[in-house]
Design a binder for these strands. Structure first.
Lengths: 340, 340
DNA sequence: TAAATTCACGAAAACGGTTTCGTGTTAACA
DNA sequence: TGTTAACACGAAACCGTTTTCGTGAATTTA
């Protein structure tokens, strides 16, 4: 890289001190107009840009927010990023995005890198492996260092920090209720293993809705997908039973379910109804289009960055962690019949 | 944030100089074993972490790569990010991701922020508005400052920097050829406005394939989508003509085309064949699934970060910009008949 | 025993800025 | 004419770290 022009260069070249240059560039009243003009002209000519690193070191802040996501090729998470980025930019922050790839080890490493002063605060969603291990020491350490820190979507309750989540229980309830109102009785649930808490919560909502209708949960209707194996095959099993609806906790499971239903010659939504989660492109563009729970990722991102920046900029106050719950909506499409 | 422990604190507390502490922590032979033990124990106890900002300032490098994308809620771009991130991490770099949101102004601003020393190099894909304006001064400036810089996918030829692109002409040719081999004659092309160069190149491939079969390009079969308006409506127009195939330059256009075809009662791939671009989830999960050109975003990301880091780390060499062309594959699925 | 080495550590500069606190010169005032 | 205030600028400290170059004491060598 080309040698950058610094305040020192300007000072030497113009025969003044660095303080004078610094003040002149800030248009300080301490400096005479001629000197300012001369310095500013020179700076402009050589395209002087203040070195951010030096400023960061002096100000003890970076104006950068670290974001750690389990994955990115994923509609929900990329929407959240958008929300975070928009909010961050508005307040003059940039974001540094990293991925854990659902791995505990990578999550720990990434967190270590980010927490050494590279960022002013961190927003993250927990890797599934971490949720499974239940090893949260890296989070505890972060909290004890008092680094501003917010968790979203996949959060861990025992960590005292700000959190932004969707009302997963409510969403699961809404989805199931809608199917019941369609007259469905044998509703399959395609979900994640129970350690992924959002999956567990959506399941609670599912069960709650069934109980309200005096239907006993039938464990054989519940499939916990192991993502390391063939997803479609796992879902196919539940189709061997006599089911009339599917509630899938994400788009991929919903899309797979629909494909299986079609292959079995079932008509959607006449013979079987399908509801997904995450209002992504698959749900929108498949045919029939899929009724889903819209998670409002963008809003989540916005909320997360908002509380984080507040935490960063008003670090005086007593620390009382906030939990923000974003409500989710049922987005009706063609894969379910409208409730009667 | 809690007051961080620094080398100075340790030095003062232990009654030695900062140089001694620094050396002790690096296990230098200059320091006696007892002193080293004492210092290391203390550092460990108080969980000392070297301040990255100070290191960056001293070393004049950040080990951070800036990435600017036009958008993120997009299968191709998020795949590229994955590739970049993986490659960067391997070499000890982190990535700072920003978005231009297809806006010229935001692109310029973001570039300015990143080029003040916050990053060691930049990878980006150009915003569509910039391509339309044809105002590339911000890139020229970057190049003149000799900041390592690579463009991918949406590149601009006149800028002298490393580039990673897919063989768009070849891809367009392949797709069209495949349709022709299926016996299709009236192939609609759903593309972007011509200023988006990837669109223009794919169109060249399309035209080339037609010429080889002595078919004259029929302008009425080509739709240049204006994304600020309703996409579906624009595509519907071309369906008023008697067409037997659609080549869409991205997933969304392909999905929309399929939906329209279905609504018109056309059977896919019997009455009409459809080919998309970008091998994303929509193509995979729609039914029928969509034959597409796979762009290998992950590979592109890997290649981009590889040449960038090479540029950063061997800045001695003479600057001879590289252009890496990634070949793309036709991924056959249900929306076209296999070639006979 | 004098000279040369080795050892263990510290002082200071450097990275690129900002900011506080002088200070010498000139102009205004009494 | 002496005092004061305003003006325009510079010296130096600071942010946290690394690294070069000393340096005094202890040890080895001649």
């Amino acid at each position: 890289m080309k040698q950058k022009i610094t305040i020192k260069t300007i000072a030497k070249e113009l025969g003044v001190s660095t303080s004078t240059v610094s003040k002149a560039l800030k248009d300080s009243h301490e400096i005479s107009i001629e000197t300012k003009k001369k310095i500013q002209a020179y700076a402009n000519l050589y395209n002087y840009k203040p070195n951010h690193l030096a400023l960061q070191l002096r100000n003890q802040k970076t104006k950068v927010i670290g974001v750690i996501l389990p994955k990115i090729v994923h509609h929900f998470f990329s929407t959240v990023i958008m929300g975070i980025e928009e909010g961050a930019n508005k307040k003059g922050y940039n974001i540094m995005v990293c991925f854990s790839n659902e791995s505990y080890k990578k999550e720990v490493e990434t967190l270590k890198v980010l927490s050494n002063g590279s960022v002013d605060g961190i927003i993250m969603s927990v890797a599934s492996e971490t949720l499974k291990n239940k090893d949260f020491n890296h989070f505890k350490e972060l909290v004890s260092e008092e680094i501003p820190f917010v968790l979203f979507d996949r959060v861990v309750d025992e960590i005292l920090c700000d959190k932004v989540v969707v009302d997963d229980v409510g969403a699961g309830f809404k989805a199931t209720k809608h199917l019941l109102e369609n007259g469905r009785k044998k509703i399959a649930l395609i979900t994640t293993p129970n350690h992924v808490n959002v999956g567990a919560l959506r399941r609670q909502g599912y069960e709650k809705a069934l109980i309200e209708e005096y239907i006993k949960t039938d464990k054989s209707l519940i499939v916990e997908i192991d993502e390391t194996k063939d997803i479609k095959k796992q879902i196919e099993k539940v189709f061997e039973q006599d089911i009339d609806a599917v509630f899938a906790v994400n788009e991929i499971y919903a899309a797979n379910s629909m494909r299986i239903a079609k292959e079995k010659g079932l008509s959607i939504p006449n013979d079987i109804s399908i509801i997904g989660f995450t209002d992504g492109l698959i749900s929108e563009y498949s045919s029939p289009s899929i009724t889903t729970i819209a998670q409002h990722g963008f809003t989540m991102g916005q909320q997360a960055i908002e509380v984080l920046i507040e935490r960063i900029e008003k670090e005086s106050e007593v620390y009382k962690p906030k939990k923000i719950v974003i409500s989710s909506d049922l987005k009706l499409r063609e894969s379910t019949k409208p409730s009667s």
